[in-house]
């Protein structure tokens, strides 16, 4: 069963100086309920654009976008978003306050939301930093506040835009493991954007590769049917999937570089 259905979706950005930009054209994708879907593509190909439409931040210019069979009217608490970059954090709130924000807005009692926030802050490795404000934290720590803030709100679907890009290799591996565990335990549906093929193979049930922009769409989907033990960089089956994905993306990188010249 699909949770999100994008059918022939196009997104045109109107520019004030004339010259509209077609970011994606005839983009089709079904994301199944409970699956972990990774979206890969060269920089500027339109990954964030797709995510923004699913989040309800941007309207589709044409085509059909449905969530649970119904058109998406706008953002809602059933879809939690981890943004690329950290300008979505609230600088006047502590880490704790940021993580509690959604629960507070939804009227959850203080005791419960404090507990939840502490739990998720600990989960992302920020125990003892609860009182600090975003300006006092590193880029990777801020990213983890964003992740804790979204997890604490317990949405049905996670939309994550390169959430681990600012983390060191070690923390990233930890976070990947935790995210996988949580999603498996709670049956969340995930749309996860990354540039890192390894990360995609470690996490995904399916990997979608996009064409280079403009007017991008999906080039193909690679199912990842590896067991947990096979999701190791050195495993033969891992390497096999890696080659497959790499081959698809390699040409697009070349095209996108050519277009830039």
């Amino acid at each position: 069963m699909s949770l999100v259905e994008l059918t022939q979706v196009s997104k045109v950005y109107r520019s004030l100086t004339g010259g509209d930009y077609v970011a994606v054209r005839d983009f089709s994708l079904d994301i199944r309920t409970g699956e972990f879907f990774c979206l890969l593509g060269t920089s500027g190909c339109g990954k964030t654009t797709v995510l923004n439409m699913v989040a309800g931040f941007e309207a589709v210019s044409s085509g059909n976008l449905r969530l649970g069979g119904k058109p998406i009217a706008g953002p809602a608490a059933d879809r939690g978003v981890v943004f690329q970059g950290d300008d979505s954090l609230y600088g006047w709130l502590s880490a704790q306050g940021n993580v509690e924000f959604g629960l507070r807005m939804r009227g959850i009692a203080r005791r419960e939301r404090e507990e939840k926030a502490r739990h998720y802050l600990e989960l992302v490795g920020l125990k003892g930093q609860e009182h600090k404000h975003p300006s006092e934290l590193s880029g990777g720590m801020k990213q983890r506040i964003q992740i804790a803030r979204v997890l604490a709100n317990e949405p049905q679907m996670l939309l994550m835009d390169e959430p681990f890009a600012a983390l060191d290799a070690h923390t990233r591996a930890d976070m990947q493991r935790e995210l996988k565990r949580i999603c498996a335990a709670t049956g969340k549906t995930v749309l996860f954007i990354t540039h890192d093929i390894d990360e995609a193979i470690i996490l995904a049930d399916r990997i979608g590769v996009m064409h280079a922009g403009p007017a991008s769409k999906l080039k193909g989907i690679v199912p990842v049917t590896l067991s947990d033990t096979e999701r190791e960089r050195t495993h033969d089956r891992f390497v096999e999937v890696y080659r497959q994905v790499h081959e698809m993306i390699r040409d697009e990188v070349a095209i996108s570089l050519q277009r830039a010249h």
Binding site: G56, G74, V81, S88, M105
Partner: peptide, 19 residues
Amino acid sequence: NKIRAARSLGAGPGQIFFF
């Protein structure tokens, strides 16, 4: 993105204004 985050965390228009 601050407003967007608030909306997808479940805040309404009044809450977005005040918080």
